[in-house]
Amino acid sequence: MLSKDQIAQRIAQEIEDGFYVNLGIGIPTLVANHIPNNISVAFHSENGLLGMGPFPTKGNEDADLINAGKQTITTLPGASFFDSSTSFGMIRGQHIDLTVLGAMEVAENGDIANWKIPGKLVKGMGGAMDLVASAKRIIVAMMHTNRKGESKLLDHCSLPLTGVRCVQKVVTNLGVFQVTRNGFLMTEIAPEVTIEEVRKSTLGKLTIANDLKEVILH
């Protein structure tokens, strides 16, 4: 089984040299820690920054320089600042190559729900609806089941949707799943996990790739 950090590590393997990448809050944030040194990647923060760097050292924080999670950050050489309209223009205009975000539920047709639980306090969708509606490539990083042990890979989302038919790939603690016309296709399985366990934890339609591999972390 993969830890949250290992989910992030596996997703980092999807990032190619020259990619502009938007990382959501939670597990996706950890992806930045696993980018190989030999590729160039620029991280996009939707509040208006391309070329986001690590957190500042103590005493060097700047209230005017934050990421979309409102955390103090730094810029890397070659970074640029811009306004929110331009920032979402980059997203809507498909200039950002990859979006990684968390989810409460993903359906076998690629629908995603990650912003609202009826009866619970709603904080808002932030930029998630814009991101999922327009991104060229969307990978969801999440645990396979919720705290009650219920599957988060479903036939239909039960929660209010964030976007429709938009998720291409899901990486969970149990493996890697492509969203296909035929539902979830498991292409990689986490170490020490059985196909039976994955089946039990998946409510949506699941098929197993003929060339199923074990997740390799490097």
Partner: peptide, 12 residues
């Protein structure tokens, strides 16, 4: 005042 909502710093 420019308060910082989430002060995050790195060690090195």
């Amino acid at each position: 005042k420019k308060p910082i909502e989430q002060l995050t710093v790195s060690e090195s």
